[in-house]
């Protein structure tokens, strides 16, 4: 190893492997991804974000939001769940079958007392389908579900893991690397109101007590109320409200950012991220969901 050119050649060969694997190959593979079909239909996913949300992406980048917030929901696994919703007429036989299929219910007197009840919950498709066939044959109605699970999902940060298709038309992609604040990949699902985001940006502590997020007041304008208050003016609690006669109005940047945040959903069921759409219960209390938020599952989303 005494010659410069030899070292150069050696380094070139050794490093070209890494360059090929992480630059050339992904450019050809990921760089050529197209829209895919959502499960259960022919709707294409994703559609490009609406224009204001696209501008919001630029605002998100310019403020460096990705240095505190990630957009990567993880998933530890996927579970099959068979939910018995209606016992039908053959209740005795169905009850016996349920006790056999679901060992945890074997001890209860009447497993059909409170429906729906999860008869199968596990990762073996064979057992899942067998249970489904058994119950259907007995005339009961059992709903099959495919449910992703993991720490991030349990925390309400997403219904499933995020995949490359969720960010297909974003440039730059801002997956983030820190969770100083919560993950935002599905924030549009749990906080769909842009006004909430505007109030939160102006005074984070007004929406999330004890929040350490800095206030982004410079994205807003405090100005004298003209003849009538602006419809865009923020409704803030007294400690954060401007003095009487003034109102806080979001600048276009703030509006764009709020639109972008609301467009972050990443909940479409896809081949690469299978799941059944369920109208689930309200997100668990440890998310940033404002108290009293009603839980309505939106129609199958098109990341927009």
């Amino acid at each position: 190893m005494n010659r410069g050119p030899l070292i150069f050649l050696a380094a070139f060969l050794a490093l070209s492997g890494s360059w090929y694997t992480y630059v050339v190959r992904p450019s050809m593979q990921l760089g050529r991804f197209q829209q895919t079909n959502m499960l259960g239909g022919s709707t294409l996913y994703p559609t490009a974000r609406p224009g204001l949300a696209q501008q919001g992406l630029e605002v998100y980048r310019a403020q460096g939001c990705a240095y505190c917030h990630s957009q990567q929901v993880g998933q530890e696994g996927t579970r099959f769940q068979l939910l018995l919703t209606e016992a039908g007429t053959n209740t005795a036989e169905v009850a016996t079958a349920v006790k056999k299929l679901a060992p945890q219910l074997a001890g209860t007197a009447d497993p059909l007392a409170s429906l729906p009840v999860a008869v199968y919950s596990g990762e073996r498709r064979y057992d899942f389908e067998a249970a489904s066939r058994t119950l259907n044959a007995l005339g009961a109605k059992a709903v099959p579900q495919v449910v992703p699970y993991g720490a991030d999902i349990a925390r309400g940060w997403g219904k499933r893991r995020t995949i490359a298709e969720d960010f297909l038309f974003d440039s730059p992609t801002l997956p983030g690397s820190q969770r100083v604040g919560p993950d935002l990949a599905s924030v549009g699902l749990r906080l769909p109101d842009p006004r909430w985001h505007l109030r939160h940006l102006y005074a984070p502590a007004s929406e999330v007590k004890g929040s350490k997020m800095p206030p982004y007041r410079y994205l807003f304008e405090t100005r004298r109320v003209a003849r009538a208050p602006s419809p865009d003016a923020l409704q803030l609690p007294r400690e954060y409200a401007p003095p009487a006669g003034y109102e806080v109005v979001p600048t276009p940047d703030a509006l764009a950012l709020a639109a972008y945040l609301v467009s972050l959903r990443a909940d479409a069921p896809l081949f690469s991220a299978p799941m059944t759409i369920t109208s689930t219960a309200a997100p668990t209390a440890d998310t940033n969901a404002p108290a009293g938020a009603t839980a309505t599952t939106p129609a199958p989303a098109i990341n927009q």
Binding site: S18, Y22, G31, A164, L168, P172
Partner: peptide, 12 residues
């Protein structure tokens, strides 16, 4: 590039 290809290159 398109989508996450950018992030892969950035991480690399």
């Amino acid at each position: 590039g398109r989508g996450m290809a950018q992030s892969v290159i950035a991480w690399w």
